[in-house]
Computed example of a mutant assay.
Amino acid sequence: MRFLSTLFTCLFLARAAVAHEFWIAPEDYTVDPGAPIVADLRVGQDFEGSPQTYFPNRFARFEVKMGESVSPVEGRLGDMPAMSFTPDRTGLAVIVHETTASSLQYRTRELFESFVDHKDLGDVLARHAARGLPELEFREAYSRFAKSLVAVGDGAGADAPVGLRTEIVALANPYTDDLSDGFPVRVLYEGAPRPDAQVEVLARDADGAVTQSFYRTDDAGEAVIPVSADTEYMVDAVVMHDTGNDDPGAGPVWHSLWANLTFHTP
């Protein structure tokens, strides 16, 4: 068991260090009443990624919220897909997954700068220099906060904040609401809206073609995403904060927090 734990940890860290998004990937975003919701946890880029096993030491929360009911996602160590959960009711199922914190060290300065630029992390590079931190010999902690929307039966219901440190809240139900004016979301950080935050969206159409687009939240932390029919969406927003540690030898000096939301339009 100790060997398996170490092996899974190493594999997870190796994948996460060279990849970007972490997301919940249901096999089907609409399921019949009484049928299981089966989903992978994936790490990768451009909607392509490696599935992760069910590994309790690697997550702080893994649950399904339907209305006011919250149920843990249970499994056996090494299960893949990581999730097989049979709801006891119909409606909108909100899958919630929070990883435990991990850390990495960048192989090159260019990778760090590219990450800061791609995720639009503001003045991180200037703050890094002002803190007197080395250009490369430092570690960054990272945590992932993923949600996914699945329709069980009629799919009726609504998303709501679930108390993640950062999260993306759907302000419409993709399975029951009119989305002709777009799909509205709110980005939260520590329970408060994140104004002027970058929202990255990946869309995979029925033919498998993936497109990428970027939006910004308004003063209320909200953004409206244009959507098309029969398309899978991933919405991503990242925030970076100072850990309060300016000694690279004592631990991570930055902590990136990744919010992710997946859903599928009819």
Results as ranks from 00 to 15, higher is better:
2 R>G: 04
2 R>L: 14
4 L>I: 04
5 S>E: 14
5 S>C: 05
6 T>M: 09
7 L>P: 09
7 L>V: 12
7 L>G: 06
9 T>Q: 11
10 C>Y: 10
14 A>K: 06
14 A>C: 11
15 R>A: 11
16 A>P: 04
22 F>W: 11
22 F>Q: 03
23 W>G: 03
24 I>V: 10
25 A>Y: 07
27 E>G: 12
28 D>A: 15
31 V>L: 02
32 D>I: 08
36 P>T: 10
38 V>E: 05
41 L>E: 00
41 L>K: 02
44 G>V: 13
46 D>Y: 13
49 G>S: 12
49 G>P: 12
52 Q>M: 13
53 T>D: 12
55 F>S: 03
57 N>D: 13
58 R>E: 12
58 R>M: 12
59 F>E: 09
61 R>D: 07
61 R>G: 05
62 F>N: 07
64 V>C: 09
65 K>A: 10
67 G>H: 08
70 V>F: 07
72 P>M: 14
72 P>G: 14
76 R>G: 15
77 L>K: 13
78 G>Q: 13
80 M>P: 05
80 M>Y: 04
82 A>T: 12
84 S>T: 11
86 T>K: 14
88 D>F: 05
91 G>H: 03
96 V>A: 04
96 V>T: 08
97 H>M: 15
99 T>M: 11
99 T>D: 08
99 T>A: 08
103 S>K: 12
104 L>H: 10
105 Q>Y: 07
106 Y>S: 06
109 R>L: 11
110 E>W: 10
110 E>P: 01
110 E>D: 14
111 L>W: 12
115 F>E: 04
117 D>V: 06
118 H>V: 11
119 K>W: 12
123 D>L: 15
131 R>A: 15
132 G>V: 06
133 L>W: 06
136 L>A: 11
139 R>E: 11
141 A>W: 06
144 R>Q: 04
145 F>H: 12
146 A>I: 01
148 S>T: 04
152 V>C: 02
153 G>W: 00
156 A>P: 00
159 D>M: 03
161 P>A: 00
167 E>D: 07
167 E>R: 01
169 V>W: 00
172 A>P: 01
175 Y>E: 00
178 D>N: 10
179 L>I: 01
179 L>H: 02
179 L>Q: 00
180 S>F: 00
195 P>G: 09
196 D>W: 10
199 V>S: 02
201 V>D: 01
203 A>K: 01
209 A>S: 13
212 Q>L: 05
213 S>D: 10
214 F>C: 05
215 Y>A: 04
218 D>V: 01
218 D>Y: 10
220 A>M: 08
220 A>P: 02
228 S>M: 12
231 T>F: 01
231 T>A: 00
232 E>I: 04
232 E>A: 15
238 V>Y: 10
239 V>S: 04
240 M>W: 09
241 H>D: 13
242 D>C: 03
243 T>L: 14
245 N>Q: 09
247 D>F: 08
250 A>Q: 08
252 P>R: 03
254 W>M: 03
254 W>T: 05
255 H>Q: 13
256 S>G: 14
259 A>F: 06
262 T>Q: 07
263 F>D: 00
264 H>Q: 15
266 P>G: 04
266 P>E: 03
